[in-house]
Design a binder for these strands. Sequence first.
DNA 1: CGGGTTTGACCGGCGC
DNA 2: GCGCCGGTCAAACCCG
Length: 443
Amino acid sequence: MEMRLLHSGDQDGRIREVDFFSESMHRSETEKPDKPTARLDSGFGFGLRLLTTSSSVAEEESNDEKLIASRRELNRLNDENEKLRRLLDQLTRNYGALKTQLMLAVQQQQQQEQKDERSLTPQQFMDPGLAGSLDTEEPSQSSDGGAEDPTDATTTNIANKSPQPKSAPDTADQAPSNAPCRKVRVSVRARSEAPMINDGCQWRKYGQKMAKGNPCPRAYYRCTMAIGCPVRKQVQRCADDRTILVTTYEGNHNHPLPPAATSMANTTTAAATMLLSGSSTSTSTIGKETLIGSGFYPYAASTMATLSASAPFPTVTLDLTHSPNAAPLHRLPPPSIPFPLPVHGGVLPQLLGQPVYIPHHQKQLFGQQRPPASVMETVTAAITSDPNFTAALAAAISSIMGGPVNNNNSNNNHDSSHSGSPARPPAAASPKLPQSCTTFSTN
DNA sequence: CGGGTTTGACCGGCGC
DNA sequence: GCGCCGGTCAAACCCG
């Protein structure tokens, strides 16, 4: 899968940049005045002599030396280019292996949990719930018993009781004591001035509370993309830095998600899966290499995911406040693909990329309820269309090679989201941000 | 008028 | 048992 990501990238992106770079290096040598070596590439010897008939022998020799040097440099760059290609292939293979392992692990864990749960109670599906995890394409998760994600069950439980809040006991009472330990929340920290990040889903606010220790109120939202969807989220600004918006998701969607939400879901699921399966300590952290290596979210190049078990239930936190916003790359985003939150344009909107405002051709895809196999492809398309992907890829390669990242993608522009990012879309994208996602529907 | 938001009330968990 | 606090409900309100 990653291969496709990277492959897409090298069609018009990175590899070509390297090649272009070598050419430009080449050209830089040839652009010196009085050295008409535009011909040096093809038939340099002859051209050189022709054009230097009036030059001294010393000048000729000097030109030859420079020519040799430039050719050497060209060869070196070509070698480097080849190395990068091989590295890319290696990354792709590693990703494939990782993905396979992850899938197997998830399936095994899932089967084990199903056994455990059946031995406890037939109604008990309690499991870590993630906002739109991998079961996105399985609306009937509660009955199929073969949910793709270990996190499915929680939401099933919530789904069972959510439409009828007063009937909670039929499931809650049967919940074993260990259930809360496997209920997971996914918290996303991102810089945004918008009251709520646009994550591709449709939400309805059902409450607001002042939380202790934070002057900013906490808002409660419920997913309204499908009747009875159990997913809820809390939105609250960070007390320390009010530009940071903390969005906490809980539960699984019982309906297909648009790509925007799916990409996010895959990331959170990946992070949660890794964190939950990895460590028994109270807090664990996975870094960008893990996320990138898994291919779940290349934007995570500057993202840290942490798992905190100090809360009543584990909370996976994706900290996107250090995202490589506005990486100094030369590629410009496709103008036809506006970014979400055009006015506020925080980090996460860029992270979520284009799918939030779905291009017209993709809106049609939405209506067709794309098959599960295409989810990652959708994410892939979103990723590869974003300029930051290249930066993330560079960071990934750099992290593996142990070399420095040369493109400044790690710690810059926390606030560039509202300081005129070049990726800013036309303001006509949507006049009302939180509702913008309602312009498309899977139903 | 329908759908979304606001906001005070209510409920349950938890610590003292 | 009591109070605090987080989460949810639902009536009132707002808006297109």
